[in-house]
C-alpha cells in the first residue's frame, strides 16, 4: 500500500460513483498532468477539510463558527427550515422566497442504509426549538419515503413544544400542463388546493 499510485487509486475508489476503473483513469491523468493540476487539487481538498466545517447552530457548511445565513442579523430568526443536505439550502436560497434560518440534518432516516434518528442532527434541532424563539418549523425533507419518515418523526418530537410545524406542499410544476401531470401529483395538488385570495 505504500505505492503512491495504488494509494491514489484506492483513495479515489472510495468516492461515491467512482469504481476502480475510473479511479485508475483519474490517477494516471493526474500523474501525467502538469504539476499544478494535482497540487491545486491537493490544496483545495486540504483547505476544504481544514477551513470548512459545520455551522454550530444549523450545521450548514461554514467558514467561521456560524454560517453566512446564521450570521446575518437580517434573517427572520423565528422560522427554521429543516433540510436533508446543505445543497438543499442552495436550492431554496436561489428562490429568494425564504428569509428565515435553516437546519441541516445531514441525511434522512433510512433503515436500509442503517441511518437512524441518532445519526442525524435531530436532537440539536429540538434543542434549538426549545432555546431559540422559534415560531415555525418548515419540514423540507425530500418527498420520498425516507424524507416522509424523517418529517413525521421530527413532527412528533416537536409537537409537544407548541411550535407551528409545516411541510412543503406537493403539487404541480409551474409552466406544466394539467393533462401531462402524473396522477399521484395531480391528486395531491387537488387535495392541497387553496382559495385564491
Amino acid at each position: 500500500m505504500s505505492d503512491p499510485i495504488e494509494r491514489t487509486i484506492e483513495a479515489f475508489s472510495r468516492l461515491p460513483g467512482i469504481g476502480p476503473k475510473t479511479a485508475a483513469r483519474l490517477t494516471y491523468f493526474l500523474l501525467r498532468a502538469p504539476n499544478d493540476v494535482a497540487l491545486d487539487l491537493a490544496d483545495a481538498l486540504k483547505a476544504l477539510k481544514e477551513e470548512i466545517h459545520y455551522c454550530r447552530r444549523c450545521f450548514n457548511v461554514a467558514q467561521g463558527e456560524l454560517c453566512s445565513i446564521c450570521a446575518d442579523p437580517g434573517r427572520d430568526q423565528h422560522t427554521i427550515c429543516v433540510v436533508e443536505e446543505p445543497l438543499d439550502i442552495v436550492a431554496i436560497e436561489r428562490t429568494g422566497a425564504y428569509r428565515g434560518l435553516y437546519h441541516v440534518l445531514h441525511g434522512a432516516i433510512n433503515p436500509l442504509a442503517n441511518v437512524g434518528p441518532e445519526d442525524l442532527r435531530i436532537n440539536e434541532l429540538v434543542e434549538r426549538v426549545q432555546k431559540e424563539e422559534v415560531r415555525e418549523v418548515i419540514l423540507a425533507t425530500n418527498p420520498n419515503m425516507e424524507g416522509e419518515a424523517t418529517a413525521m418523526y421530527i413532527a412528533r418530537l416537536l409537537e409537544p413544544l407548541g411550535v407551528r410545524i409545516t411541510r412543503l406542499a406537493h403539487g404541480l410544476p409551474i409552466g406544466g400542463d394539467l393533462e401531462y401531470a402524473d396522477q399521484q401529483t395531480l391528486a395531491q395538488a387537488l387535495e392541497g388546493r387553496r382559495p385564491i385570495s
Partner: peptide, 12 residues
C-alpha cells in the same frame, strides 16, 4: 425500539 419510528413504519 424507538416507539416513534416504529409507529411511523406501522402506520405506513
Amino acid at each position: 425500539p424507538d416507539p416513534t419510528l416504529l409507529a411511523f413504519w406501522n402506520d405506513a
